[in-house]
């Protein structure tokens, strides 16, 4: 049975999977665009008032995916074609005060 192949189309990899696979297959490769393109980019705060049920659902979804609320929002925006900065699409480790490991 192991030699039998499915003829159904393969589902596309998720963006996270693509990045993980690319990183593991060729970890030394440089980015196609230089760091100068984003060197002037700085982080800033966005405060959005939303209903508690929405925020609870967001927190629960992020927990279930093993990621952060920030990344869930960033991925949703990117999915709709919003030009999201690459750093906002990365999982960052939790800060130590929230149980993360020291670098």
């Amino acid at each position: 049975m192991k030699s039998l192949k499915s003829t159904r189309a393969m589902p596309p990899l998720s963006p996270g999977e693509m990045l993980r696979v690319a990183g593991s297959a060729a970890p030394q490769q440089p980015p196609a665009i230089g760091a100068t393109d984003s060197s002037s980019d700085k982080s800033s705060m966005l405060s959005v008032r939303m209903m508690e049920t929405t925020l609870e659902a967001l927190a629960g979804f992020a927990r279930s995916q093993g990621t952060t609320q920030r990344r869930v929002i960033a991925e949703a925006l990117a999915k709709h074609g919003v030009r999201v900065a690459a750093r906002d699409l990365e999982d960052r480790p939790l800060p130590r005060r929230r149980g993360g490991l020291a670098a």
């Binding site: 596309p12 990899l13 963006p15 693509m18 990045l19 980015p31 990117a78 999915k79 690459a86 699409l89």
Partner: peptide
């Protein structure tokens, strides 16, 4: 789009 993370999301979106 030449930035890898944004490219991954773009490919995933347009492929659908």
């Amino acid at each position: 789009e030449a930035e890898d993370a944004r490219l991954a999301h773009l490919i995933h979106r347009v492929a659908q």
